[in-house]
Amino acid sequence: MLAFTLRRTAIALVLVWLVATLVFMVIHLIPGDPAELLLSQGGVAPDPAAVAELRERLGLDLPLYTQYLNYWAGLFRGDFGVSLQDEHPVASEIALRLPRTLELIGAAAVIALSVGLPFGTMAALKPGGRLDRIASLIAGISLSVPVFVVGTLAILVFAQKLGWVSAGGYVALAQDPVRHFILLLMPASTIAVGLGAVVFRVTRSAVLEVLGRDHVRAAQARGVRPRLIILRHVLRNALSPVLTVVALHLGSLLGGTVLVEYVFNWPGLSGYLVRSVEARDYPEVLGIVLSISVLFVFLNLLVDLAYAALDPRVRHA
């Protein structure tokens, strides 16, 4: 297990390097002068003086390898540059907002798993039954409604029409814990709609598949009690595929936070990104994309390790 962990961590570090380098390269891979590209608005050629100034500010006038070294030196110091709009250090803004995004994702995952897992299992134990048909229908619809539509409609119904909650916003936990969680509930549930449907579907099919395996029949042949068969031989084995599929959806989950934070005015990292893209604030965009991507890599690492903990065969691979 230790060797496995070390190996996976090493792979994750290589990926981080790749991701960071790719992020750095993106601006140079696009044809044309990056500074000019960033300043051009609707086909109007930008002011040459402004272009020159931006080039200097971003260090684009230096040779490529110097830029690359400076980039890494900055990353190691925790320096992601300053915003083009207000000269504010990008790193401190990220440090402030990242925990809020993480909280949102965590809450969404908890809601999705606590709905998807039990319902998926129950549906699989009686396939074609009433619960299965209703839950499958709901899951099918949930998967088809884009997250920003869910969020917008939720605001329309729960905030505007029913007036149960306010349309969005954020209050720090220390300031007012109750209100903090009330405000967290709607955006987290919005993300959980799609994710929960994914968890439901994969749990259902994984449980169905495991139920048909030889070792379940063998456990029956030993006279093991039904409850134990389901827990030890069915659910335990079905967790691995569930984990795999959830990991595959991590990316769209993280992407989904961009829209949800925007819709609900959640002051997280992803919503901040939209503002930066609108303003074409290059250092901000780079910093945020880099931190979320690194987060993504490490979440995947966690999934890999969990996978190994679940299945002894993986540890030896």
Partner: peptide, 20 residues
């Protein structure tokens, strides 16, 4: 597959930043 190291929405936004 390197592209899969990025959450899709982020990569999209990154490209939009550059190309408009």
């Amino acid at each position: 597959e390197v592209i899969l190291c990025f959450p899709p929405m982020l990569l999209a936004l990154l490209v939009v930043t550059l190309l408009g």
